[in-house]
Amino acid sequence: MQVIVSVNRFNPKDNNGKYWEDYNLEIEENATVLDALIKIREETDGSLAMRCSCRSAICGSCAMRVNGHARLACNTKLADMTDEAGMIKVEPMTNFPVIKDLVVDQQMFWDKVKQVSPWLQSEGPEPKGEYVASNESMNQLAGVMACIMCGACVSDCSVMEVDKNFIGPAALAKAYRFVGDPRDSKSVERLGVLNEYSGIWDCTRCYECVEVCPKGVAPMDRIMALREEAISVGYGDTMGARHADVFSDLVEDSGWLDELRLPIKTVGIFNLPALLNFAPVGLRALVKGKMPAIFHHNVPNVQNVRNLFKRVRNDQNKDG
């Protein structure tokens, strides 16, 4: 088939800045995006820079943006991505500085991974043999160990786009790999660090990382699991944790969300500065008639809902 691969190019040594270059080529129907780029590199333009190695989605080298989303070039079928004109657009990952063409600098990515002390920290003398652990616990971690550190999740992360301090989905998924590891003894300490600013509560739950992850790691789900874990070990005193708590309480109380009470209860009724912070927005809303109803009604038979909450919680406590 005939395709046009439009590549966003950049070389700091020339003065062209970033620009698009189109490559026309004939390639077999089942070719991948990587096959096309390799063909370009070998037959047309040896100056096109990219990383690639395994061709089978395990080395994590060839993450790049194809038609606006981060993917591995090696397991992306060209024919699935071309538009009516047979064109695809290929760019380097975002949220990374570009070294040249499709090659990005991953130093900051690895610095963030290092930030979560990504090594097993067991306690006490090592057993003579292996640690005893259930197969379920190991299988559960296998989903995260499947991470190939390609950076796709970081590239498309909504929060990293506005805040370079955010630890980010890849590093947080890596952190989960230890918090969830029964052999690790530092879970509470780890959660304490992750609970802080730029950690688990800064994720905006947008699912970009889940969508683009080529290995099914679902980093955001891991971040949510870390939040649940942080709350359960007693790190309830963050805005995020309180937000989840209050949210749950309000739904339990009336069946649905009371938006007037949520922000107030989240920041705390005695947290005057934070409350004042909401005030201008509240005032603007009031003037426009946009304020939530002051008198919040319960759903019919709300007692059923309250009972359900209690029952589920009791059963969960029984199961440990």
Partner: peptide
């Protein structure tokens, strides 16, 4: 909601308790 249906949890309640 007139028939007693509740909020979905909006993903927030799920952070604390997905089963619920």
């Amino acid at each position: 909601q007139d028939r007693g249906a509740t909020c979905t949890g909006a993903g927030v309640l799920q952070e604390k308790n997905q089963f619920l």
